[in-house]
Computed example of a mutant assay.
Amino acid sequence: MDLQVLRWFQAVADGATVTETAQRAHITQPALSRALGRLEREVGTPLFTRAGRALRLTPAGRVFKHTLDQTLDRYDVGLRAVAELVDPDRGVVPLAFLHTLGTWLVPPLISGFRGAHPMVRFELRQHGEAGILQSLLDGVVDLILTSGNPGHPQVRWHRLLVEPLRLAVPSAHRLSHRKRIRLSEVAEEPFILLRSGYGLRTLTEELCRQAGFAPRVTFEGEEVETLRGLVAAGLGVALLPPPHAVLSTLDAVTAPITPAHHLEVTDVDATREIGLAWLADRSLPSSSHAFHQHVLAAGPTLVPAAYRTSRR
């Protein structure tokens, strides 16, 4: 089987159209269709069925793709391992992380690592917990920085630190003069939450449940800083990581409204664990292994002392 044809099959099976795949491959659409036809004859059964203008995998196609994804992933890992063996200073580290970690944790981790490995490249992806976990399971990335142990049997996770959550309230809110608050005190307030599928959304709902109520959701978003801005605009309250110094400075200069106030929560354990995860049964290429070791050593030292926790 032609390796390139297998990659074309994978692209179409993942949802790309034949036209899009042919354009990316710089071949004609009929040529790609013929190549996929040859692949089906080699496999011995149809792999696609047509649904309107789209192609859908047959049951045999789904089985074939599952095995092919694993095979191509191992092949690509092998290529990277050989390339890094030949030139260990020019590897690639595919990394995915939560949006909220991109402003304070990820930059110094990468900067500190590249001080010793200046030629290593990073392929970075941002998403919520579900998205970055899927990227890891699919072999798209080698490592993920996420909130809480994913609890997946194929994944190993190491806690780096515990990050406190604060109740963000508008500057004109009746409680904004306070430093501490019981979460139960805002049971009747409108809440601004991340969309379903984000770990902070699940954690917020659980903490509210522990405090004796279900949050009344008025707005949903996909970025913590968007939620913080909506709170500052007076549209509700939210449980959020505290703003970091860099963001606070920028907010003071550019924000058209008074920033939100962030209050310590005292009646529930309003914290979340931040950690590094990788696949348990997959050997990391040398560059990713070196970054893995760097994160385990440097991660807990890059945050204020109040955030730190003992390693497990």
Rank of each mutant, 00 (worst) to 15 (best):
V5N: 07
L6T: 09
W8Q: 14
F9T: 14
Q10A: 15
A11G: 08
A13C: 11
A16D: 14
V18M: 13
Q23E: 14
Q29R: 15
P30Y: 03
A31L: 06
A31T: 15
A31V: 12
S33Q: 15
S33E: 14
S33F: 04
A35I: 06
L39D: 15
E40V: 02
V43Q: 14
P46H: 10
L55C: 08
R62S: 11
K65G: 00
Q70G: 11
T71F: 09
D73H: 14
D73F: 14
R74G: 03
R74L: 10
D76I: 13
V77F: 01
V77I: 14
A83I: 06
L85T: 12
D87W: 04
P88L: 14
D89A: 15
R90E: 04
V93T: 02
A96N: 01
A96C: 06
F97W: 03
H99Y: 09
H99E: 07
W104V: 12
P107I: 04
P108T: 02
P108Y: 01
P108L: 08
V120S: 05
R121Q: 10
E123G: 04
L124N: 04
E129D: 14
E129Y: 09
I132A: 07
L133F: 00
S135C: 11
S135R: 03
L137A: 03
D138C: 03
G139L: 04
L143A: 05
I144L: 07
V155P: 02
R156K: 08
R159P: 12
L160E: 09
E163A: 07
P164M: 00
L165T: 00
R166A: 12
L167Q: 06
L167A: 08
L167N: 03
V169Y: 09
H173E: 07
R174W: 10
R178K: 11
K179T: 08
R182Q: 11
L183I: 02
V186D: 03
E188L: 02
P190W: 07
F191D: 00
I192N: 05
L194M: 13
R195P: 02
R195T: 05
R195E: 13
S196C: 01
G199D: 01
G199N: 03
L203N: 07
L207V: 03
L207W: 06
R209A: 12
F213R: 03
P215K: 03
V217E: 01
F219K: 06
E222N: 07
E222Y: 05
E223L: 10
R228V: 14
G229C: 08
L235R: 13
V237N: 09
A238D: 07
P243V: 12
A245E: 15
L250Q: 13
L250C: 11
D251H: 09
A252Y: 07
A252R: 11
V253F: 13
T254Y: 15
A255H: 13
P256K: 12
H261R: 15
H261P: 00
H262I: 02
E264S: 13
D267E: 01
D267K: 00
V268S: 05
D269M: 01
A270G: 06
T271P: 14
T271L: 02
R272C: 05
E273T: 09
I274L: 12
I274C: 08
P285M: 01
A290C: 00
H292T: 02
H294E: 04
A297H: 05
A298T: 00
P300L: 11
L302A: 08
L302F: 01
A306K: 05
R311W: 02
